[in-house]
């Protein structure tokens, strides 16, 4: 029994984020090494889930919607409302982009809450990869629509001439910091939540094996774990929503220039 406890026991709360390699292929012919890791596997699962959800909600092109279609339509409607309130009429062209981002981030947050699974969004390569790509795309879009007038974004209206050089520097830095902060927010939230759950469950496990009195007391931290799991589900939704909303507001800067 003691050996079982010692092997199951997880000492490091960051151990759950370790990337493991399942198999790889490569050699002199291919030149590079292609490997399937657990983050790759989970990203594939999330992609299949997104595609499967969309396929199920088509409901064989029937006019009467099924339950899947109603879920999909209400999600679609709320994202469309968000775009209308942040960007306006011009932003409706970006609805498929923002909708895909919302669904992908949401499902990769939620899949990590399945016990013994891996969270793809708890890696910086996920969040910062997304946000850097979004910032590059938004900048290209801004230059395409406004040409050199896009630099007007870095000078707030009504600035005295003496303050312009300082403000341009500050605004440029804050514009470029978006690439980091957007992804860092999502990733840090996911890491923080999962580490919190792991530390709490370690604490509870120590109380459970401690003795009969501690076993009774351990009901209290156990209730906390359940409450935190509920909070984590809420945070998964909130972070996906915030990620989409901030992407929409960056698009708004590029399309409408403040």
């Amino acid at each position: 029994m003691t050996t079982f406890i010692n092997t199951v026991f997880i000492n490091n709360p960051l151990e759950q984020f370790e990337i493991k390699e399942f198999f790889y292929m490569g050699g002199p012919l291919l030149g590079a090494k292609f490997s399937l890791t657990n983050i790759g596997l989970y990203l594939i699962i999330v992609t299949i889930l997104v595609l499967g959800m969309s396929y199920l909600s088509l409901n064989n092109n029937k006019v009467v919607p099924s339950r899947w279609s109603i879920v999909q339509e209400s999600l679609f409607g709320s994202i469309l409302n968000m775009i209308k309130s942040t960007i306006g009429g011009k932003g409706e062209a970006y609805l498929p982009f923002l909708y895909t981002i919302f669904l992908y981030v949401l499902l990769s947050n939620l899949i990590g809450l399945v016990p013994y699974s891996f969270t793809p969004s708890s890696h910086f390569v996920f969040g910062i990869g997304f946000s850097v790509a979004i910032l590059i795309g938004v900048t290209i879009l801004g230059f395409q629509t406004h040409a050199l007038k896009f630099f007007g974004l870095f000078v707030p209206a009504g600035t005295p001439l003496g303050l312009v050089p300082v403000l341009v520097m500050i605004e440029t830095i804050s514009y470029l910091a978006r690439a980091l902060s957007l992804g860092l927010r999502l990733t840090a939230n996911m890491i923080g939540g999962h580490v919190l759950l792991k530390i709490f469950s370690t604490f509870t496990w120590k109380a459970v094996i401690g003795g009969p009195i501690l076993l009774l007391i351990s009901i209290i931290p156990f209730a906390f774990i359940i409450a935190f799991t509920g909070l984590e589900i809420a945070i998964a939704f909130i972070q996906a929503y915030v990620f989409t909303m901030l992407t929409a507001s960056y698009l708004n800067d590029a399309i409408n220039l403040h």
Binding site: M82, R185, A188, N189, I191, I238, Q239, V242
Partner: peptide, 27 residues
């Protein structure tokens, strides 16, 4: 409420930067 959720997430992220620093120092 939607503005509040946005403000909450932005504020919480600042707190999480402290968490990131703690992890960097520990590990």
């Amino acid at each position: 409420f939607s503005y509040t959720i946005l403000g909450f997430a932005l504020t919480e992220a600042i707190g999480l930067f402290a968490l990131m620093m703690a992890f960097l120092l520990l590990y």
